[in-house]
Design a protein around this nucleic acid. Structure first.
Lengths: 288, 288
DNA sequence: CGCTGATTTGAATTAGATCAACGATGGTGG
DNA sequence: CCACCATCGTTGATCTAATTCAAATCAGCG
């Protein structure tokens, strides 16, 4: 798949994939690399399926099978839409496996402001991601976006399982790094200066993770997100999101269907929009 | 220590630690929680020592001992200050353990702009943090800030070791979650709207991780950071950092000693500054 | 139908980026 | 040891983007 993405990317004007060692501080570098990161999605737009999620799913299966076969005590719980799963201060002695549905985690900053830190779909793992600190507490809030089924496992039980079945640790590593990728993506969003770019970046990210491919082959994000929610994910305001959405819509980069279904006709154009938007005002080769 | 932090925090006006379930959308909540997270540092300002790093160090020892005893093939390498350890596109088939010195990882955005994503000290682990994807590539650049000794281990070798010695996986979990905490902290910084707040947040973070306690009991950050470097860590500019620094200095929240030694006389006041700075302009109870 | 919440628009204000310029600093090589 | 140069810190003027505030429109729903 990576080969495929490389071919795909290098077939576009201004996007050249370079090998290791050649990639220092060149124009359009960020586009290139991010395009490579988007490889799964881009490739699947040509009829192929991203393999990242498959890998991940299989590792979750490994984990679930291991837990089952060793008779680990787990609790499966259902949460209605908007229900809180845990809040800051709750003991962080368990890990949460999302079996179905969508869950988001967020932090509150300022007095009333909240920022979404991650959006998870089935197969995701959340809760403070470490097995060592038993006495820790949650630092953020997790809430169900859609109805969700969650499997709750004590970290101590998981630690026991890891000792007994080392291979499940790989499932955990995989889940952790998946989560790491999420937060990395959030950086990609927050580091953009302009609201429009941040929003574009967010859509790229959401499209990659939650996009559904319709009949026409277009990727659509159908999470029923309000402008307020988008503002929370881009560290911005409702109004600014409204304006940025209109801007992106007029440029044909996104397309809002009936109610809150966001279609992404051209992810690469969207990506270039991000680049150009921020490239316009970049200066001062930084050395810090 | 947590109990201690709680007592400490709740002894301050406006800062009340609440138990689980009581912590929904209350004023000063973020202060409370962040103060709890800072517990180690705050507590140590009363003569106690943060335990987080100790735990971490011991887990790295476990890892090193395991690698040694099983005869894992590793490469130890020295890097001069400012030397590049890897760049984007390099194969991500190894993990890097920082034995001594300081290393930073950064990404380039736009054409010339770079953003520091993590600052690591001895005991830190870097490189793409997953053991599963062998074929992946680095997405960011790692460079030595000070002279650094780095131990490089193949992921495949590490995977073998995990299977053979399940306990080392805990060391890896610990290292990964440490890194996760780093990126979380970065979010805390980037989510602040104002440069002054972002800078204050950065100092809190750096103080927590790199602060040295002098004779007077003050925490000082002595990394020789330039304004340009601070700008890179706060997604801002040199000039804006200059102004923000002066502002913080005039408020007595930081104190710059001879050359580039930043002293933090009162971490909690700094924290409240972040809160108030953003509280002034918070509105719209968010539900997204 | 009137309510509530979401979206959109506009005007005023402000924070910060940008650009330019200056002295200070520190390291380099002659 | 000194001249040179690059980087750093600071300041001010200008300009743009985004927040803030206010208000109108629109949607679904009891």
């Amino acid at each position: 798949m990576e080969r495929f993405a490389r071919r795909l990317v290098s077939s576009l004007p201004g996007l050249v994939f370079r090998g290791a060692g050649e990639v220092h501080n060149r124009p359009a570098l960020a586009v290139t690399l991010y395009a490579a990161a988007l490889g799964g999605v881009l490739a699947s737009s040509f009829g192929r399926i991203a393999d990242r999620t498959e890998v991940h799913d299989s590792s979750q299966e490994t984990l679930l099978r291991g837990m089952k076969e060793e008779g680990l005590r787990t609790v499966e719980r259902r949460y209605a839409s908007n229900a809180e799963i845990y809040t800051p201060g709750d003991p962080a002695d368990s890990l949460y496996l999302l079996l179905s549905g969508v869950v988001r985690t967020y932090k509150t900053y300022g007095e009333l402001k909240e920022a979404t830190t991650a959006l998870l779909k089935d197969g995701g793992v959340f809760g403070a991601l470490d097995l060592t600190e038993e006495g820790g507490r949650q630092q953020e809030t997790a809430e169900a976006v859609t109805e969700a089924r969650v499997l709750i496992v004590r970290k101590s039980a998981l630690a026991w399982l890891v000792r007994r079945r080392p291979e499940v640790s790989f499932a955990l590593f995989s889940a952790f790094s998946e989560r790491g990728g999420q937060t990395e993506a959030l950086h990609g969003i927050l580091l953009q200066r302009e609201v429009t770019s941040r929003l574009a970046m967010l859509f790229l990210h959401l499209g990659k993770r939650f996009g559904e491919r319709g009949e026409t082959g277009e990727l659509t994000i159908d999470l029923g997100l309000t402008h307020q929610q988008l503002a929370c994910m881009t560290a911005s305001t409702r109004e600014a999101v409204s304006k940025a959405m209109i801007e992106l819509r007029e440029e044909g980069l996104i397309d809002v269907r009936d109610r809150k279904r966001i279609a992404l006709p051209d992810m690469l154009a969207l990506l270039e929009r991000v680049e150009n938007g921020s490239a316009r005002k970049s200066s001062q080769a930084a050395s810090g």
